[in-house]
């Protein structure tokens, strides 16, 4: 049975940084070349010369090794006027692409890994929140997530309880909506786009669409890079490297509800590239 993940869209380059010489990279173990061919045009080709479908969205170039049955997922907020779109850049991580997404969906690690920024002891409790798999959209959603944060964003001055929503629209992509300190009632959008190089190696391309008129663009980039780099040593030291779809060697609790829903959704769709099927 071929993995249906082959038909999904994946980020393979930052559009603003892609030139005519392009870049050689890997997608699910296959060497590919991505290069700019015009002011708004990009070509992606496999090693044998086969050209791959391309989309340019959310600051990134997207392609697929298979035949995508669905258009690249929509992030409506990306087109809202007044938002600042932030290309955060790429970071390579020696872990399963699925583990990178799962970690992004996790809040319980904030006090220990993002200490004094996204969380701090003694505020470690994860309160009940809602998780659902939206059938029409075929996406995982976690809503009514709340967590106390000493410095939730670059624009946050002090500690506040931050509201979150998480969305998984594709097996290696996640969109996070969080309270936007300068504009109560609006949500900042922070995404994690993951390029699966192999089942145990990935390139992570964070991207943001923020309401923040004050902060310097570089500050915004640095803040998000700082957060993600605090996670990197965790991701590279989880055993096994692949994401277990059988939790027999783990102990998920209610705080891991989003992780469980994400893994269930992967399992239902047979999205197993980067997954470990049997607990060992």
């Amino acid at each position: 049975m071929s993995d249906p993940m082959i038909d999904e869209w994946y980020p393979v380059a930052l559009f603003s940084k892609l030139d005519a010489a392009g870049r050689d990279t890997l997608l699910m173990g296959h060497p590919i070349h991505v290069a700019r061919t015009g002011s708004e045009r990009v070509a992606a080709t496999e090693a044998d010369g086969r050209s791959l479908p391309v989309r340019i969205r959310y600051g990134h170039v997207w392609t697929s090794l298979g035949e995508p049955k669905k258009e690249l997922f929509d992030i409506p907020e990306a087109d809202e006027p007044g938002r600042r779109l932030v290309d955060v850049g790429v970071v390579r991580v020696r872990c399963s692409p699925l583990r990178a997404v799962e970690n992004f969906l996790d809040i319980a690690h904030f006090p220990f890994v993002h200490t004094d920024i996204l969380g701090a002891e003694p505020h470690t409790e994860v309160e009940k929140y809602d998780v659902e798999i939206r059938e029409k959209e075929d996406e995982v959603w976690a809503t009514k997530v709340k967590f106390f944060q000493p410095q939730a964003a670059k624009s946050a001055a002090g500690g506040i309880t931050t509201d979150y929503m998480y969305r998984v629209p594709a097996p290696t992509c996640s969109v996070l909506y969080k309270t936007c300190p300068p504009r109560p009632g609006e949500w900042d959008v922070i995404t994690l786009f993951v390029q699966p190089l192999t089942e145990e190696l990935c390139d992570v391309w964070p991207w943001m669409a923020l309401y923040d008129d004050e902060a310097d663009m570089t500050d915004l980039i640095h803040f998000q890079q700082m957060i993600f780099l605090q996670d990197r040593s965790i991701l590279e030291n989880q055993i096994p490297r692949r994401l277990p779809l059988d939790p027999g060697m783990e102990i998920p609790t209610r705080a891991d509800m989003t992780s469980v829903a994400y893994r269930r959704w992967l399992k239902r769709h047979n999205y197993t590239y980067g997954a470990q099927l049997v607990a060992q």
Binding site: A108, H109, P111, F112, V113, E121, T124, S233, I234, N237, Q238, I239, P240, P244, M249, E250, I251, P252, T253, A255, D256, S259
Partner: peptide, 24 residues
Amino acid sequence: CPHRGMRLSHGFVRGEALACIYHG
């Protein structure tokens, strides 16, 4: 760590207990 597989040698010792760096 039995919870989510993080290496406990990356953790920290407080008093008479070893804690995992990931979720504590």
